[in-house]
Amino acid sequence: MEEYVISLEGIKGLLENLTREGFNIYAPSKNNDRFVKVKDIDEVALFPDRRPTDISAKECLFPKCEPVFYYKREKNNVEIVDIDPNGNKVLFGLKPCDAASFTIIHKVFNWDYKDKFYNKRFDNSLIIGLACTYLDDYCFCTSVGLSPVSTVGSDILLVRLSDVSFGVIVITDKGGQLVKRYPQLFEKGEPTKSKQVLDSIGGPARKFDHKKVKEWLDNNFETDFFNSIGDICVGCGQCTFVCPTCHCFDIVDEDYLYSEGRRMKNWDGCQFYLFTLHASGHNPRDTQYKRYRQRVNHKFKYYVDRFQEVLCTGCGRCSRGCPVSIDIGDIVSRISKLS
């Protein structure tokens, strides 16, 4: 892997150049609640020690709602107007737990049927990661095969060397081309320096073996383990909405007028009663503990069975934000000790 050094000014210059190339820059908002389109590049700041945004970066490539086509009706006839997501994006300052999420959900959007909406956005974006020095009780990236310095998902990864200087690790061809386009901004770096910083970043305290979690889930579908969670979970589903890897969605139509409208793809979540409710009134996941069991299984078993990836990056958002303090890291680490 090639390494460079870039100054803080250089980063701003890079973003300015990319803006000129036609990229929209997305970075954590001022109050750190989500990734927003940057209006003023001078406002972009790099905080490796800030906690993950409240809502993950997933919405940059998989928005909370998007039209999949428009339709027009006239008498008996319907005309469908196909659309393509356009616009090039730079996702800037993603923590490795956010960057990795795209590598993970890429699989579900690309097996057999390919979702062009996700894919086009993915293809047209550049992901600039930032090695993370934030740690709290909810983080557990190292337990799901990642780390605060993981390069998974990033095109280039920035490593903070000082307030004004950042190491640049080039990961993908896209990242390499970026460096080649603006050679004046990048100095050839000493790999040891970034490495020193990277080595000094420890992992989160919470540690468990996700293979053990799967092992137990493989053999324990009918279990009372989830009952006490079902007691208190209110089914608000915020965990699924803030999650960088939860990707379930709903498809609905929206009319503007009788004559035209659009079909939408909206976020949806497994914690809702309606999610699996049949038209007949039957509901296979009729109680909250079943819905919670589904979430844990989907992340640590089903997705692994199908895509060989854990559907979780250990970012801890779901637990930080849970209104009733359900802590998924605690739950799965307890599960890992059961098998």
Binding site: H247, D268, H278
Partner: peptide
């Protein structure tokens, strides 16, 4: 088998029974 479905494409995540997708 029937389960509620939306996409039919193995993506929207609701028709699974354990690790199998009814739609796929």
């Amino acid at each position: 088998l029937e389960n509620r479905m939306k996409c039919g494409l193995g993506k929207c995540g609701r028709c699974n029974i354990g690790n199998i997708y009814v739609c796929k």
